[in-house]
Amino acid sequence: MISGYRHAPFSQKLYSLFLILYPAEFRREYGAHMAQLFRDRWRETKASGGASRLRLWMYTLLDLIQSAPKEHLEKLRKGDSIMRALKTIGLAIIIYVVAFVVTGMFLEKMRTQMPFFLGSLIDAIVAVGILFNLIFLILWSTRLMPVARAVIASGIVSALMLGIFLAIIGSIVPANARPSGGAYLSIVLSLFVWFIVHWTWAQRKAQPPATV
């Protein structure tokens, strides 16, 4: 909060309100200083009377119109890395969906020739893999957290989501159509497999390069 705001003249309060037009980050860093600058200029005009105050407001509004959009545009340009991350995530979703459909069709054909548990395990590895990798990709590419923490968070979120999904399935589907014990075991194993794969990769990534 800008100090002395409560006792400031109306013009200074109004200018402080206009600062809301700037991006929040910029306002936090420079808002108080900009208000101070306006206050200094306002004091300058005290002796000169109404005309110079009017001129000050004219220049200030012109400055506001020019500089506020500029700061917003700059913020958007800086957001390029987020846009790139979102594009990567979008592309990954498409690849996952295609992989899921193709693998599903292939497994449907092969299911009769496979031992019971192996079929469930492959289904689970594909399905859990899609979920786990997608969550990990979002956390990692948006740099929300360090890679090792992203792996742990992906594991926890995937496990929670699958747990909720299976609980809902268990409550609405008739008993004879519910997933078998083998399917539950496959899901747990798949979570474990995907966690180990990512954790190993994260540990290697975290190691400093070997010095010769």
Binding site: E29, Y30, M34, L37, D63, S67
Partner: peptide, 13 residues
């Protein structure tokens, strides 16, 4: 050249 608060602090940034 009169630098307003927005232009001045934008440039400083």
């Amino acid at each position: 050249l009169r630098l307003g608060p927005g232009t001045l602090y934008g440039s400083i940034k």
